[in-house]
Design a protein around this nucleic acid. Structure first.
Lengths: 206, 206
DNA sequence: AAGTTTGGTAAATAATATTTACTTACTATT
DNA sequence: AATAGTAAGTAAATATTATTTACCAAACTT
């Protein structure tokens, strides 16, 4: 028995593409199934053949985005040595992603988290995988003496992502534009050296 | 012409209380207007007399919560000198609030941000006011030489709230329980001194 | 060639947010 | 005291929209 290449039927692809297109200018909640169906050129019923409900369709689109992002991140990290250097790169990549994919920034930061199903979805599985990557790097840094050992790795991860997300949130909500490089540099510096003024605080060696 | 004390009619109060009660165990989206009306002991129509829509009712409940929180914060800060000490207290108060008001933590962190109206609501006005307080403290700290002057105040604020919110998010989603004091201490230490291991990093003087 | 799966349609259903038209009671004014 | 006006509240109608159901046709299996 050969394994069939599970190529998606055209209708399914059209639905997914329509969803992505509509999300470009519209909020998830404001989209109606009928609208999605019309844009995709299929009937409403077909959407429910391939997706459990409207949210499930969103999660699918999001999952595809995360898949690309994870590939990109793995690639970005190649050839970089040292936990702090890796974290620095991850911070940059994350900010760059939010800046260049405003739609997904909006969805991820604002629109998807208010359903319990999201945290059970395959999309969120990929978020977990990403988290693991970070935690591993942090632990590597602690073991190597690069990162303080008196802070739990989970808190460090929360600080990194909390800071990034909160910073990007303002950009999403109020449509501000900031240079990715500047933001990444500032956030890295802040998280690595802290906000307190001290003997070595203002001269980041990195 | 005397100014009338604008005392809320009983129906309105019943609606607000019903909403608060229902939110205790239920997610906002899952609540129906009819359910809220039945719980409040009023008819559905009355809800629309006092609130523009379901969301507006949520924003009202949230606003009342923020009002109490702001009063509490102002009080918490009294008698504390030094920007870093004030920030430390604010971090503690914020974490304490999320820990002791899990319902509002859920609403604020997950359920309310996916509507544009929220960012125009009176509830969000109070968030802005809170933000101003923080920014002022940060600038005070920079002026006094307590806080690094090469980091924009906005980024510092984002780091503080991003870290707090991200940390509390995990607790809300996965129902973890962590001691407020421990979390506050760790987060403060992390933000003040950074994650990088350095000569003075592991011996916080605060 | 018969049976079964797959891609797809079209209309019915059901849930539920919101509106409308209407009552009743109170408050102020002359 | 009569009346106009307003605020609190009701009950039912409406309208939107997600979701389900029943059905069709082509393709694939054996």
């Amino acid at each position: 028995m050969e394994r069939q290449t599970p190529v998606s039927p055209p209708g399914k692809l059209k639905i997914i593409n329509a969803m992505r297109t509509l999300l470009e200018n519209r909020t998830f909640e404001s989209l109606t199934i009928s609208e999605i169906a019309v844009t995709a050129g299929v009937t409403e019923g077909l959407i429910y053949k391939y997706f459990k409900d409207k949210r499930d369709l969103l999660h699918h689109v999001l999952k595809e985005h995360y898949q690309l992002f994870l590939v990109q991140i793995e690639r970005d990290l190649q050839g970089i040595d040292g936990a702090l250097n890796k974290l620095k790169k991850i911070i940059w990549s994350s900010i760059e992603r939010y800046a260049n994919h405003r739609v997904f920034a909006r969805i991820i930061l604002l629109e998807v988290r208010n359903s319990e199903e999201y945290f059970q979805s395959e999309a969120y599985d990929l978020v977990r995988r990403f988290n693991h990557i970070i935690i591993d790097i942090i632990n590597e840094g602690i073991a190597a003496g690069e990162i303080r050992e008196d802070l739990p790795a989970g808190y460090i991860r929360n600080a990194i992502f909390g800071t990034i997300e909160h910073s990007c949130l303002n950009r999403v909500i109020f449509n501000e534009t900031v240079s990715t490089n500047d933001a990444a540099k500032l956030i890295t510096d802040l998280l690595f050296h802290g906000i307190k003024r001290s003997c070595n605080g203002s001269l980041p060696s990195l």
